[in-house]
């Protein structure tokens, strides 16, 4: 028993050294994630870390933006505003309300050059008064991503990098890599038409955690799980990516 405690303590120390900081306040957890949070070390969605989202086509971009909005809506309940740095597509703010966000609390920065984008993202991640920084950036090298990770460890801002058709899938110093694909929605009851926003959320990489894949629908400000899927190798074959 004593040994187990010791090991748990040591594990916590290692996690801390690797950038996974323990949650500061007990209330600040994303409790709407449900079973998805189990994939992360200590079972808590890491805030104050960098998450990477990869999208390969326009439909995935929209799905990822929706999923990101859900996360932001939760993250912003505890802290200040959100900065959304984008290069190409412009978000349509009225849609965000549906994902539990106040659209007027988001500051959009629209940029033309990758160099400026990286600079703005880094500066924003250093600002502890922000809750979340979303950065739409195509490519990022390992060094730059490490620098961003160091910035958030200081400021405890959550950074979400959204990469659309990255040039190459290089390793990044991020806590997790997600890919969100749209899924056919389930009809609501026996009503015809489109149901709630439904996605297949794949956690491709997670530091010190277990990757996984879930099918979720966004409803009543929380995720509803359609079914727990098998580990991602099987999904790969199924979806053919």
């Amino acid at each position: 028993m004593d040994k187990k405690l010791k090991i748990a303590e040591l594990q916590a120390m290692i996690l801390e050294a690797e950038g996974f900081l323990p949650p500061m306040e007990n209330s600040r957890q994303l409790n709407m994630l449900g079973p998805m949070a189990e994939a992360f070390p200590t079972g808590i969605f890491p805030m104050g870390a960098i998450h990477e989202f990869v999208s390969m086509d326009v439909a995935q971009v929209a799905a990822s933006a929706g999923f990101i909005s859900c996360l932001i809506g939760q993250l912003m309940q505890h802290k200040g505003p959100c900065l959304w740095v984008s290069m190409g597509k412009r978000l349509f703010p009225p849609a965000l309300k549906r994902f539990g966000m106040e659209p007027d609390r988001v500051i959009f920065v629209n940029l033309a050059q990758q160099k400026d984008t990286l600079w703005v993202i880094e500066e924003a991640l250093k600002c502890p008064s922000l809750a979340v920084v979303v950065g739409e950036i195509r490519d990022l090298d390992l060094t730059a991503s490490r620098r961003l990770q160091l910035a958030v460890e200081q400021s405890r801002v959550t950074g979400l990098l959204h990469r659309y058709r990255p040039g190459r899938m290089n390793n990044m110093g991020c806590a997790a890599r997600w890919q969100v694909r749209p899924m056919a929605s389930k009809p609501i009851g026996r009503l015809p038409g489109i149901g709630y926003p439904t996605w297949q959320v794949e956690l491709q990489k997670v530091r010190n955690g277990r990757p996984g894949c879930w099918q979720v629908a966004w409803h009543r400000n929380r995720f509803e799980y359609l079914e727990q899927l098998a580990p991602r190798e099987q999904i790969r074959i199924k979806t053919g990516t």
Partner: peptide, 12 residues
């Protein structure tokens, strides 16, 4: 208030 009725796309 932000309109609640009528679903709007996330990218327009």
């Amino acid at each position: 208030k932000w309109p609640q009725t009528g679903q709007r796309p996330i990218y327009l």
